[in-house]
Amino acid sequence: MFNLVTRVQTAGNQALTASMVVTGFVILLTLLQLAQDNVWGISTTSITNIQPTSSIKRSSQYGSVNRKPKENSKIQFDLDADLTPLFNWNTKQVFVYLTAEYPGKSEGSSNKVTYWDKIIKSKDEAKLHYVNQRSKYSVWDVEKSFRGRNATVRLEWNIQPHVGPLIYGSTETTGNFQFLRNE
């Protein structure tokens, strides 16, 4: 019973098994390498000089419903970070994003929004240095306004591998600012 079909089947099965084992090894080695490079403990970042601005929008593109006024927030910030440890042989790209977290109205509620992000494709671009950088997005809340709440700013990252799991983390430094009171 050594006809073509069984031969192709056997070869296919072996190829599948082999590639699964190799993929497993790649994933394991990647995780070990990242742990060794201490990527979850990057502490040299600085996020400073955060200046919020605010405006009232009445367009649905800016979160307004039925032309009701909606507060939109932007920030300017200084950022220094060295993300080169995130790049190894299984890194396809790093997506880095600046988030602000602030409390909601009720107990147990919370919000997190992205002000700025960037796709980094190589190690050469992984040293970030920005002064008075403007946020990329105009941000609105589920509520009508931000009511002058305090926000915590973090620099977070996501490694996209060539093969394997997506890996997430954030640098240890945080920044703070208070939304403008605009009511």
């Binding site: 593109q61 997506f95 909601g104 009720s106 107990e107 147990g108 509620s109 919370s110 919000n111 997190k112 929004v113 992205t114 992000d117 796709i119 997005y137 941000v139 809340d141 589920v142």
Partner: peptide, 23 residues
Amino acid sequence: RVLREHHNSEKQLLLTKGDNNAV
């Protein structure tokens, strides 16, 4: 990708965006 999240104890709202899209 999730751009914003707003949650309370019952429900979570998400706004998403494609990395390669402008908006």
